[in-house]
Write a protein that binds this DNA or RNA. Structure first.
Lengths: 185, 185
DNA sequence: AACCATACGGAACAACGTTCCGTTTACCAA
DNA sequence: TTGGTAAACGGAACGTTGTTCCGTATGGTT
């Protein structure tokens, strides 16, 4: 009983995703709605019909990469190496994802209601993965017990904000943070 | 040859600082200009005449505390303890300052042109202090050589964004980061 | 071909930062 | 005390955004 969407609607959704992806690359995830609409050759109303909030649009554009990140977690844990190494490798993936998306890390930490959904989606999808990795590392006695997976994710996300400054290497700092997680036996 | 300012101008500047301080506490440093103006009982034009950019207003409100932070650096280094301890203590002060100011850490990392001045002021005043502490810790062989003072400041500032989330303890994470700075001899 | 639910476009509204200029006022000199 | 003037003020007005709403167009179906 799912009434199939009209052809023009499906076409527009597709067009919008492409236009948004391009606009995000060119001007960051905070690019004005009107710009995306113009790029796609549609009215702003059409954007809001398909993607009620900006977060929905962002999630739609990056869903594939987020999924890939989520699926990499268990794989890394199953592969060779210590649990801490798996955790570090996974965080590297996450950082790579974030620093290549202008303004995404900033949006992720914004308390703007518009981005609650975005925050929520990232957490829902990736937090369990991070939990599992942390848990394994904790059991192996490789990381501190007093830092939660949630804090690690937020911290890493925060450190990724404002990349693009040549004097600031987010990857390196995340490395320092992850190093700091190790138990100083 | 400095023509003294008019009495009403000086009075208004004072009133504005108080109103802004109150508004910052109540609604964060991004509180609408009109609100500050209303609170102070002046027109918006008056705000812009005294403080051309929001950053100027923010700096004016917090100048004292920033100075205190800057002056604490050398003092901590002169006191007992290792250089790394002094660095950690100083960073604690900085974190305490940031997490108690709604939205300040976020503003600090914003690439909005309005906040360039703010970023600049913090850097100009505090970066040399951090440099000195880091230098001492490096000479004592207590911290990694590949992380700059600038990166530490930015990283700490970033980690302080979005405090107020009960699941996220910025102080703890900064502690992890600072711990990660230690050389793993 | 005709009908209608779906979808579209963009004008219109609200919130904000910022500018600008007619009006008021503090200061000084006569 | 009383003008005169430069300084300062207030808030209307403008530009830029996000968001809503409704008259219009159109794809699908009968």
């Amino acid at each position: 009983m799912v009434p199939r969407k009209r052809a023009d609607a499906r076409r527009n959704e597709e067009t919008l995703l492409e236009a948004a992806a391009a606009a995000f690359v060119a001007s960051g995830v905070n690019v004005p709605v009107r710009e995306i609409a113009a790029q796609a050759g549609v009215g702003v109303g059409t954007i809001y019909r398909h993607f009620p909030t900006r977060a929905d649009l962002v999630v739609a554009v990056y869903r594939h990469q987020i999924e890939a990140c989520a699926e990499a977690g268990p794989a890394l844990l199953a592969g060779g190496g210590t649990a801490h190494q798996a955790l570090a490798a996974w965080i590297d993936m996450f950082v790579d994802f974030l620093v290549t998306k202008h303004g995404l890390a900033e949006a992720l930490q914004s308390d703007d209601a518009t981005f609650q959904t975005l925050h929520g989606y990232f957490l829902e999808r990736l937090l369990p993965v991070c939990e599992r990795l942390m848990e394994a590392a904790r059991e192996a006695g490789e990381v501190r017990e007093d830092v939660s997976a949630y804090e690690v994710m937020r911290g890493v996300g925060n450190l990724c904000a404002g990349a693009g400054d040549s004097r600031y290497d987010a990857r390196r700092l995340v490395g320092v943070l992850v190093g700091g997680l190790r138990v100083s036996a």
